[in-house]
Write a protein that binds this DNA or RNA. Structure first.
Ligand SMILES: [Mn+2]
Ligand SMILES: [Mn+2]
Ligand SMILES: [Zn+2]
Ligand SMILES: [Zn+2]
Lengths: 142, 142
DNA sequence: AGCTAGTTGCAAATGGTTCTCATGTGCATT
DNA sequence: AATGCACATGAGAACCATTTGCAACTAGCT
């Protein structure tokens, strides 16, 4: 918790350094984001942020998320047939497995796949800038 | 061209067998899709289809695409910040590299990556149903 | 404390896609 | 070839997540 408080202070610093003001609303959203263990969408973040500061509007949630995304602090995911979901970008890169029955999102990382992707791009004469890898799965029945 | 005509007749057969009527509009859209070498979106398909049958409406393009998708004849792609793009599903599975400068879409296939994905899902206790792999790239400058 | 440019809440706009409904038509049957 | 009807169509309205315009507010510098 002191850990996450530090992280929040750190994030606020990043914002200030980027010429972005740390308002009451942004602090609330930032705290919610830093504490989130899942991949909430804008309206879920709004619901949670209002518990800290009831004045936060959904517009501001969206505006703040866009600002944080541009600062590289937050990552946006657009999974299949769903509203955009967000997470802080402090964890190392990973991709996602989505349970198509429950909607649960599981993180994973494969260095092999990461490397293969870069190789494929290179073979085609391109530099890989970013990628999207999502596995839509069903829990194994045995 | 006889080749593609056959393909079109074949596709129409698939539709009829699926209890879907082959209308003038659907025939036009099907022809456009079968001939497309790229990954057009709904409004581009509409533009092209109108050259065959000027009465085709955008609503019908969308409805037909959804029907074809359900029949498994057409595949829908939702690339980053873009309208949905479509292609016929007769080619073997492949993934896409998107040139973030020009928007060009290049197809590729990696059996290794395909296999790794299934392995990852399995390790996490899941069966891989489908996936999405997109490489957002910039042409290499040398 | 005062200034000012950035930020907010609210409501309205956006835009791709889907839906509604009155009219039209593919096609199995006669 | 004509009929009937379930399915399709065109036009436009509705949808809905996200963005934007604007007047009021405020973070942060002096
Ligand atoms: Mn994640
Ligand atoms: Mn393709
Ligand atoms: Zn990855
Ligand atoms: Zn693939």
């Amino acid at each position: 918790m002191s850990q996450s408080k530090n992280r929040i202070v750190e994030l606020e610093g990043i914002l200030r350094d980027g010429g972005v003001r740390v308002t009451r609303q942004r602090a609330a959203i930032l705290k919610i984001l830093a504490e989130a263990e899942d991949h909430p969408d804008a309206s879920e973040l709004h619901r949670r942020a209002k518990e800290i500061d009831a004045t936060v509007s959904l517009s501001t949630v969206y505006r703040t998320l866009s600002a944080l995304e541009q600062q590289g602090v937050v990552q946006r995911h657009a999974f299949e047939n769903a509203t955009a979901r967000f997470e802080t970008a402090d964890a190392p890169h990973h991709d996602h497995l989505i349970d198509i029955e429950t909607g649960a999102v599981i993180e994973f990382r494969s260095d092999k796949i990461e490397q293969l992707q870069a190789e494929i791009a290179a073979e085609l004469g391109y530099d890989l800038v970013r990628h999207r890898l999502e596995l839509y799965c069903r829990k194994r029945k045995d």
